[in-house]
């Protein structure tokens, strides 16, 4: 039973910030439908009153002492930046400037 169509795949791709070609959308629609059919088997399992298991071993979130310690320098943190300006990561303009031409960077 195909419960997912190309429209929903496109919508999900937008939400996931993933540009897909039309060919990829078509393939993805078929793949996801087949996988969702397979995982449907879980519906047969009675999980009434079963606590969700979010962690593999019993786990109390440990706290460390709140002390200042060395961390990466600005230069190290920026060393892999595809584009930088001074001590910042550079990205395309987010807020449009009134009257300015569209940023083509």
């Amino acid at each position: 039973m195909a419960r997912i169509g190309p429209e929903e795949v496109r919508e999900l791709a937008t939400l996931a910030r993933l540009q897909l070609s039309e060919e990829e959308v078509a393939r993805m629609t078929g793949d996801l439908a087949a996988i969702l059919d397979y995982v449907d088997a879980l519906r047969a399992l009675d999980t009434t009153d079963v606590e969700p298991m979010t962690h593999a071993v019993p786990f109390d979130c440990p706290l460390r002492a709140d002390r200042v310690a060395p961390s990466l320098s600005v230069e190290e943190a920026l060393a892999n930046a595809p584009r930088r300006e001074g001590s910042f990561f550079e990205v395309p303009r987010i807020v449009p400037v009134a009257g300015a031409p569209e940023d083509e960077s």
Binding site: T14, A16, R17, L18, L20, E24, L32, R93, I94, E102
Partner: peptide, 25 residues
Amino acid sequence: RSLDELYAKTRGEGFGAEPKRRIML
């Protein structure tokens, strides 16, 4: 040209078929 486009195109170009499938699922 925009930040949204930067994210979507970067990820569309950078990820192979299997990571894309798993991100979508």
